[in-house]
Amino acid sequence: MTTALVAKNLVVVRGGSTLLNDVSLTIESGELLAVIGPNGSGQSTLLGAIAGDFVLDGGSVTLNGSDLAGLAPRDLARARAVLPQQMVISFPFTVREIVAMGRSPWRDNNDDTHIDAAMHRLDVASLHTRIYQTLSVGEQARVSMARVLAQDTPLLLLDEPTAGLDIGQQERFLAIARSLVDEGRGVVAVLHDLNVALRFATRVLVLHEGRCVASGDPQSVLTPVLLSDVYHQKIQVTTTAEGRSIILPEHQ
């Protein structure tokens, strides 16, 4: 399973304001790229741009060598899956029905296998007859992720996948994300928790006011100086007794 997405010099302008300004990134098999930055820095816009959601005002995105704009929606859906920030579903579908929708670009004999595997992996198999709208926020997030996994794509784009999860669910979720990367998939995730980015990402891209201000290895990118500057908040990076780095806001 190989994937390679290359985004070059992306520009997105909406209503006169530049949401993305000359942002470039690459993502390949076996990478987990965390996109971080203060709220409103353009993370979701970046994810939408590389998902092919809208026409770019500048720059280009290629997936495995082909221009994203030229790919048929179905071929694109077989190559990349997107987990939206929040899903409002309009009719009382059951959990299994929702997860099964992830198979719609494929529709083959393996559908049930993929659906069952995805539900099992996200631990939502026991919820299969429950109606999505009646689930808790954390359960809904897991069901949505199971739907994305059922799509079985080499590339996954996740918009704040850990929002609404408690610390235990978050750890289990990130372990799943890590195992997807180990399988050779590529993952791009918009994250708000810097410690999560530090621990789980293979690379980090920091957005600030629509620009990429740093990108690379998490340990070298997530420095107190850069973070304090970007978040307008004094931030320190300390090391625990076990030798793990943690990012903390400084006391005022």
Partner: peptide
């Protein structure tokens, strides 16, 4: 029938699943 099911997820998720 199938497309209408997927549309229940919203326009963008439906697009991500290959629906025009």
């Amino acid at each position: 029938s199938r497309v209408l099911d997927v549309l229940a997820l919203g326009d963008r998720p439906a697009t991500h699943l290959g629906v025009r």
